Simulated scan of single mutants.
Amino acid sequence: MSSFATSSDGTRIAYDADGSGPPVILVGGAMQFRGFDSNTVAMAKLLAARGYTVINFDRRGRGESAQAPSFTLADTIEDLRALIDAAGAPSALFGSSSGGSICLAAAAAGLPVTAMVLWETPLGEELGTDSAANLAGLREKLAAGDGDDVIAYYMKDMPPEWLEGARSSPGWPVMTSMGPSLEADTESLAWTQSAPRAELWASIQAPTLALVGEQTLPIMPPAADSIAANVPHGSTGVIPAANHSWEPDVMATRIAAFLGSLA
């Protein structure tokens, strides 16, 4: 049965907590929530078995956290603040894809974050304008109210076969229902280009591991290198993985090894 944390605007955030030990909060990227992402559900249980309290939550606008008045990056940071309070202690964060840029923004905002593992965060060029343009375009699509167009726009820079596969899958209606929540993903990526990253991330004291897969998209290794170079305590790593996805046991093992090295 789900537990719930209440964010600062009254939005109820649904989550599962598995295991006992230092808390780790899993921050999903685009299209991820507990009922739609069995990989992360499985990884949460495997990581919990390694001695952690693992919190896997539905971001606002998704799953059991579907009802919310707005979906900004600031809203999502407040949701994380509520989850950290529910955990009862400063927490490590695992950010998947654009969930990684949300984690960086949360840590820079001063949330009590002990460490971060960031998986293939798709950062554009430092000080670039592409993500800001994407945010403006996404907001136009959201205002027009066509869920199909919102998802197609969000995925326009991804390999075309990903969008084709999504459109033909039974999960497409679920994806289109999540459109409003993609504002926080896009806004967080735009934020990473809004100023020199060393300045944006100077206050982040949490040790941060930026991971990529052995087979990955060209954007990902430079993005991981940029994270490691610009957070005060950053490093990079490579795991056996491909197509922006990973095996639950591989990821749980890597997260536990990194967090264990800091103990």
Rank of each mutant, 00 (worst) to 15 (best):
I227V: 11
F33T: 04
P222L: 01
M178K: 07
L211N: 02
P218H: 09
A210K: 01
R12G: 11
Q215D: 15
G179R: 09
V24Y: 00
A107G: 01
L26V: 14
A229I: 13
S70D: 07
K156G: 14
L135Y: 06
L182Y: 12
E199L: 06
G124N: 00
P196T: 14
D225R: 15
I102A: 00
E126D: 03
A136V: 10
I219N: 03
G110S: 08
L123N: 00
K45Y: 12
G137C: 03
Q193C: 14
A263Y: 06
D157Y: 14
T176R: 13
M155H: 14
W172K: 13
T40W: 08
S203G: 11
Y52E: 01
A144V: 04
P22T: 01
V250T: 14
S97P: 08
G179H: 14
Y153P: 11
A190L: 13
D249V: 15
A89F: 10
I102L: 04
E199D: 11
S65F: 09
G128V: 06
S96G: 07
V250Q: 07
S101D: 12
F36W: 13
G35A: 07
V54Q: 02
P23E: 03
W162M: 13
A82N: 08
D148K: 13
L73F: 09
D79M: 05
G128L: 13
N243M: 05
T236L: 04
A42H: 09
T176F: 14
G147L: 12
L46C: 07
L209N: 04
Q32F: 11
I77E: 02
A132T: 12
S261C: 04
A49M: 06
A115K: 01
M1P: 15
A133E: 15
A166N: 08
A263S: 11
S168K: 15
A166P: 11
S7L: 08
I102Q: 10
P240W: 11
W162E: 12
R34C: 11
A263W: 02
G260I: 08
E125Q: 07
R62E: 06
G95F: 00
P222G: 05
G21L: 05
D149M: 07
S96F: 12
P232R: 09
T192R: 02
G100P: 10
R34V: 04
E183G: 04
A42T: 14
M175Q: 05
G21A: 04
G100L: 03
R81Q: 08
D79Y: 01
G35N: 10
